[in-house]
Amino acid sequence: IWVHAVSVGETRAAEPLVRALLAQWPEHAVLLTHMTPTGRATSKALFGDEARVLRVYLPYDLGWLARRFLHHFRPSLGVIMETELWPNLLAACRRLQVPTMLANARLSERSARRYARVPALTSLTLGALDAIGAQTAGDAVRLRALGARRVTVTGNIKFDVAPTPAAEARGATFRARIGARPVLLAASTREGEEALLLAAFAQHAPPDCLLALVPRHPQRFDEVAGAVKAAGLGLQRRSDEAEVAASTRVWLGDSMGEMFSYYLAADVALIGGSWLPFGGQNLIEACAVGTPAIVGPHTFNFAKVAEDAVAAGAALRAPDLDAGVRSALALIVDPARRQAVADAGRAFAAADRGATDRTIELLTKLAP
């Protein structure tokens, strides 16, 4: 069974689905394909040396490469995560009779407008899919408007992601290394956000507060380390595997596949990608483990999740990073309010689980 997860976010979202596929079809292996080294590294971190999980890069969307890929691996089923619509690949799947589903599908209004510029190609590409499992009713409406058929609202598989025992143990280890200090986590930050964050943290945070800073992309670890030093803040790296010194103000999370562990070690989290117009990152993991999350104004990639979390009291929204840091620090010194947001986050995450089972149900109908 072939599962395409282009990069880190899609790979992490695919984790519960991959495990369910292995359980549902024990005679099959799962082939995970990626387009980025970070996606491949994430799958390695999640599934380790699991003999039934293979991983390769997906070739570029050229007809002859797509056909060669499918002839070589001969998948019984194809599952494409979220929004990766490759016309030649899907045409080859249809021609070679490989049933293919778009799972955990999301389509923002911005992306829908882009696809609408090439209506014939978009309709043809969506029409090549045998099933679509949309995250929300809004996603389903936008997909149907572009020509998609066989669309079912299955929910967001990311609600089914849970920390493994190893991740929980690692989180406890992180917390032991840090000690009793309050911890503000900046999760999956993007370029341009760190400078604003560091300035706000230096201005507002008390000396005992530790900033755990985890950039989204590993190729930026050294760049962000340089920015911390330029800001005059004491730095340590997670990769040093050392206890965090009292003089350290910023602990750089220079690792892959450990986000749950960072959330478990933190008191409050600022969600990266939402402070500048990148569209935000997934806040469900923070909610699931009871780490209060604060998002910025730019959450269009996760619009419904972010809006629903804020409405449920499971997350807070701030207009900029200066306000975000101040809101986080206010939560840290108010244990009762922090606990209320944590409890609301756990309830919010638990209420929307089940998308994996609904996706498996659709795939069972497609299986030859």
Rank of each mutant, 00 (worst) to 15 (best):
L77K: 12
L77F: 07
G78N: 13
V79N: 02
V79D: 01
V79M: 09
M81F: 08
M81A: 07
E82C: 04
E82W: 02
T83W: 01
T83A: 06
E84Q: 12
E84M: 03
L85T: 07
L85F: 00
L85V: 01
L89D: 02
L89G: 06
L89W: 08
A91H: 13
A92M: 05
A92L: 03
C93M: 14
C93A: 14
R94T: 05
R95G: 12
R95V: 14
R95W: 10
L96R: 15
L96C: 09
Q97I: 15
Q97E: 15
T100E: 01
T100H: 09
M101N: 06
M101I: 13
M101L: 15
L102P: 04
L102N: 06
L102H: 10
L102G: 04
A103P: 02
R106D: 00
L107G: 01
S108F: 05
E109T: 15
R110S: 03
S111E: 06
A112P: 05
R113K: 13
R113D: 04
A116R: 14
A116H: 10
A116W: 08
R117H: 07
P119Y: 05
P119E: 05
A120G: 08
T122D: 03
S123K: 12
S123W: 06
L126M: 04
L126G: 00
G127Q: 08
G127W: 06
G127N: 12
G127I: 10
A128T: 13
L129I: 13
D130F: 04
D130H: 12
D130C: 05
D130W: 06
D130K: 12
A131C: 10
I132S: 00
A134Y: 02
A134K: 04
A134V: 05
T136K: 11
A140I: 02
L143P: 00
R144W: 06
A145C: 08
A145T: 13
L146Y: 02
G147W: 05
A148Y: 11
R149P: 01
R149L: 10
R150P: 03
R150A: 12
V151C: 00
V151A: 00
T152W: 02
V153L: 02
T154S: 00
T154R: 00
T154Q: 00
G155L: 05
N156H: 10
D160K: 07
V161M: 07
V161S: 08
A162G: 09
A162K: 13
P163N: 14
P163D: 12
A166L: 12
A166E: 14
A166P: 07
A167E: 15
E168S: 10
E168R: 15
R170M: 10
R170K: 14
R170I: 05
G171D: 00
G171Y: 02
A172F: 04
F174V: 10
R175E: 06
R175V: 06
A176G: 13
A176F: 09
R177V: 03
R177P: 01
I178G: 14
I178N: 15
I178D: 14
V183I: 15
L185M: 09
A186P: 08
S188Y: 04
R190G: 09
G192I: 14
E193L: 09
E194K: 07
E194T: 08
E194W: 04
L196F: 11
